[in-house]
Design a protein around this nucleic acid. Structure first.
Length: 552
RNA sequence: GCCCCGUUAGCUCAGUCGGAUAGAGCGACCGCCUCCUAAGCGGUAGGCCGCAGGUUCGAUUCCUGCACGGGGCGCCA
């Protein structure tokens, strides 16, 4: 019996009481069913009696009594108690709780999939680094979180596209090209250019593959370096993200938005809706009508398009491709952009509250040797995402970035991550998985085919078996919450709690028969439970993009 | 000045769509492998949940103000 089933039973009770005239209900209620911290409070608890007391016009405890009496008759429920100000605590029969193990095993990789977001088309844009250098540690958080979020949304039934916006036009591209050109020709790197060692490497690579480039006239040469460098960096970014197990579905070029006329037609749309005007020689979007602090320039007085101009077209582009919800993951240093983006939606006649979601993530601080590492692409002080993967591995890197809520600051201690100690919870979770895999392997070696034997869920009566079953039953709800709140960090946190519950179970409940004894029905039931726990750990780790090893 | 985020155990941080005794890891201390993976488990110590008000049966959680810390307020990207 799952928490969902308990909630449904409570709803049934409430409705039948209401239709029998024993209770007045203002509106249909979705009862909240929780797992109490304190095991003395039963397997599940609900506060419906307190919530409904006022509208029902009776004291919470009386109402609780009414509901509890009916609940006690529900099959699978072994006990109901009223506690405190009006909590209803209930206990399940072991067989009803244990049945879940079989359900999990049978659902396999699908266990934990939910339907909350079915029918929604969601675009998740993240990282969107300039193609003027490698993906670095400053981007790593978004790479991990964005990818995990996308996986969560998919599990919740949404249609999801992961997208990277390439800022391949504008001033930074020219700076980049000039820096490469200078590095290749032995000139000084411009002051506002890129200083990193990688610039020299890239410049050399370009000269090597296109020796003729050095003979070109200065203008053509600059363009050639810019374009060649762009292609090399873009390929580098794709490759390093691939190694990080973050593969984008769409790489959208800013340049293409201009060339295809998307920017121009966005402007037309704004004109139609009368949100567009000219002043001081520039062309503006009247974003202040929709909550922005000031209107924003689309075309500068010198005729150049702003970055924001592309953004407006990009939003239309996403909507035209059928996305109801456009999620942007941005760093805290871009939070000033939120109102602008929302205003774009509003200016085009959309509902900013529904169509645009901006997740602002706090920046990651990085320490090494107890000192903060400052990252600056232009100053050339870069730790790339590939360096991180080389040092600590993809699993540890992704996991430690995903396990914190994005609005909380995060310090990545490179020394700590390199240690591979238990400080890093990814090992704790993976170890639980490997431990179960080992037990199942041993069962197989002993010739115990638990799947073929009868599963007697009523045998799982040990307290730690009950707790483990309860934890397994939580997984779909954790997935729902993570998806609806856009909070993928809830998955690793859940997995850590689940791993603890498994380790505790393992510590006090012998799974396999000792010596040459024949397996008992209890051994078999526990193997089902182990298999279920292993499956949930695997599914959860998969959502994080972290491997679930069979041996460690 | 205005806007966003944070403030919870010695340290790093969870938790809160308002619920019963606030959690984990690390660090400290004490135990547990002739037995399925000890990367594990059990126990002890450690808290005015930043401060002050408000909302109510009930606030660490919601609202307001304040303090401290981080980030942002360009015809830059």
């Amino acid at each position: 019996m799952t928490p969902e089933a308990v909630a449904a039973a409570i709803t049934d009770v409430l409705e039948s009481l209401a239709s029998a005239g024993r209770l007045t209900l203002d509106a249909p209620v979705v009862p909240r069913v929780e797992r109490p911290r304190n095991p003395d409070h039963g397997d599940y608890t609900t506060n419906v009696a307190m919530v409904l007391a006022k509208s029902a016009g009776m004291p919470p405890r009386d109402l609780a009594g009414l509901v509890a009496a009916e609940l006690a008759e529900v099959p699978g429920v072994s006990g109901v108690e009223i506690a405190g100000p009006g909590f209803i605590n209930l206990r399940l029969e072991a067989a009803a709780a244990g049945q879940l193990a079989r359900d999990v095993v049978e659902d396999g990789a699908d266990y934990g999939d939910v339907t909350d977001l079915e029918g929604q088309a969601i675009n998740v844009e993240f990282i969107s680094a300039n193609p003027t250098g490698p993906i670095h540690l400053g981007h790593a958080r978004w790479a991990a979180v964005g990818d995990a979020l996308a996986r969560v949304l998919v599990r919740a039934g949404a249609e999801v596209v992961k997208e990277f916006y390439i800022n391949d036009r504008g001033v930074q591209m020219d700076n980049f090209g000039r820096s490469l050109q200078a590095a290749a020709t032995g000139a000084a790197i411009p002051e506002d250019g890129y200083q990193g060692d990688y610039i020299t490497d890239v410049a050399q690579e370009i000269v090597q593959s296109e020796p003729g480039i050095l003979q070109l006239p200065a203008d053509e040469q600059l363009a050639a370096f810019r374009e060649a460098g762009y292609q090399l960096q873009l390929a580098e970014q794709k490759e390093s993200l691939h190694r990080f197990r973050t593969d984008m579905d769409v790489w959208r070029s800013e340049r293409e938005l201009h060339e295809s006329g998307a920017v121009a037609s966005a402007f037309d749309r704004f004109r139609e809706l009368d949100h567009f005007y000219e002043a001081d020689g520039a062309q503006w979007l009247r974003t202040t009508e929709f909550g922005d602090d000031k209107d924003r320039v689309l075309v500068k007085a010198d005729g150049e398009m702003t970055y924001f101009a592309s953004d407006t077209a990009y939003y239309f582009d996403k909507r035209a491709r059928g996305f109801d919800i456009c999620i942007y993951l941005l760093g805290a240093d871009h939070h000033g952009y939120v109102n602008r983006l929302r205003a774009v939606a509003a200016c085009s006649g959309d509902d900013a509250d529904r169509n645009i979601e901006v997740l602002i993530g706090q920046l990651v601080r990085i320490t090494r040797g107890g000192r903060e590492v400052r990252l600056s692409k232009r100053a050339g002080n870069i730790v790339t995402i590939s360096d991180l993967v080389d040092e600590v591995g993809v699993d540890a890197a992704r996991y430690s970035l995903i396990r914190y809520p994005v609005d909380s600051p995060l310090t990545l201690d490179l020394d700590l991550l390199e240690k591979r100690t238990n400080d890093n919870p990814v090992f704790y979770v993976q170890y639980a998985h490997a431990r179960i895999a080992s037990v199942l392997r041993n069962a197989h070696d002993l010739g115990i085919d638990w799947r073929a034997r009868e599963f007697e869920p009523g045998l799982l009566t040990h307290e730690r078996e009950a707790i483990l079953l309860g934890a397994l039953a939580e997984f779909p709800r954790v997935m729902s919450t993570a998806a609806e709140l856009r909070e993928p960090h809830r998955i690793p946190r859940y997995l850590e709690a689940l791993a603890t519950d498994y380790h505790k179970f393992y510590d006090s409940c012998r799974v396999l028969p000792r010596a040459d004894n024949e397996p008992t029905p209890l051994n078999v039931a526990r193997l089902w439970l182990c298999a279920a726990a292993r499956q949930v750990l695997e599914n959860g780790l998969e959502v994080c993009g972290v491997s679930a090893p069979d041996r460690m």
